[in-house]
Write a protein that binds this DNA or RNA. Sequence first.
DNA 1: ATTATCTATAGATCTATAGATAATGC
DNA 2: ATTATCTATAGATCTATAGATAATGC
Lengths: 216, 216
Amino acid sequence: MAVQTNGALGANRLDRRKAHTRQALVDAAVGLIADGRGDRASIQEITEAADIGFGSFYNHFDSKEQLFETASEEVLECWGQMIDRACAGISDSAKLFAVSLRISGRLAWTHPEIARFLTGAGLKILDLPYGLAPRALRDIQAGQAVGQFTISNAEIALSAVSGGLLGLLRLRERHPERVEESAVDELAEASLRLLGVRAPEAKRLARLPLPPIETW
Amino acid sequence: MAVQTNGALGANRLDRRKAHTRQALVDAAVGLIADGRGDRASIQEITEAADIGFGSFYNHFDSKEQLFETASEEVLECWGQMIDRACAGISDSAKLFAVSLRISGRLAWTHPEIARFLTGAGLKILDLPYGLAPRALRDIQAGQAVGQFTISNAEIALSAVSGGLLGLLRLRERHPERVEESAVDELAEASLRLLGVRAPEAKRLARLPLPPIETW
DNA sequence: ATTATCTATAGATCTATAGATAATGC
DNA sequence: ATTATCTATAGATCTATAGATAATGC
């Protein structure tokens, strides 16, 4: 009756097997959202995509909703922490905002699965306390506070910036030949102008060298 | 065996009754999308919301998808034509864009049901050939052509603008006290800056008098 | 022996249709 | 007589669970 319900880290083979099954479910859910199937997929469809037995689903989740919530949290948190690592040490609000957005836009090249998840999820990502939304909102508000951003409503601005990001990711997904990496920097520049940064300064900020981006 | 399948206009009472039932279904679908239930609602739920018998559904539509598509088309086309009427006579691209956006943002006050439909539908409205998307894309491209807008990718810009609009409508829906009508004009101003219009000119364009808005 | 996975299935829910009922046309 | 609506229901699909099977721990 020992308490050893770690799960994630390989306490023993049984735990690792369980974690593996769970991860297969989460990955399948991410893939289904990325495919635009969203949460309309049946549990049977999910377990088939995960290549596990139907009943195993209930060893890990009580409902589809719970699985999709977990999957969203995992993807968005992974993304958010990637941004945090890349932006460590940047203190200037506008610069922080620009770098975050430029790294996020580059997800279409560096982490296509995350990018496809984001386009599949749409603006719903703004309702979740993970990923870009809370970080970008924080950065926009910081920029407002120091007068770098003149726009008055941070939440509306965030929604506009997110819409631009999603538009870029989606266009790249559908027509890769029509979106080059420079489009990401142009989006960052335009977003800074939207926030109220003067055009020349926006151009400069959107072309600063980026910290190294992790590619798995 | 006379051919009189007009339906919409009151050819006779039978046709009017049929049109009424159909409209009840469309209205219910719009309301369900507005409520965020989207196309996950069952047909039973739809007919109950429309207050008609279950089987009547199939007198009008083959599937939920078809109903929701029809409902989307109807709402978006209604909105698009409202904008067309209001903008008749405006030739300047930037002005046209600004007026369209300002009228659209004011939907939250003038036509809350359309506004709620839009926030419920999200960025999916960009995939449809009705409503704001095709008109705004046309205006943005016209502005690019004459050099008023310097942004390079019209589709990404449109997505950003749409994101801002949806953010405003959503914020107003959830926290009416935090969004005044002036926020719409600020969004238009910021959007123009995003498109590449110089800040003072953007401010001027976003404050021009609006044509009269129809309120039903 | 314990634990997770898998298969099979009961019960709930949903879709699509058939047939009965009600309303209108002529 | 014609047409649309409504009620009832068959069949399909989906969820949740029970019990059997397989894998691992000790």
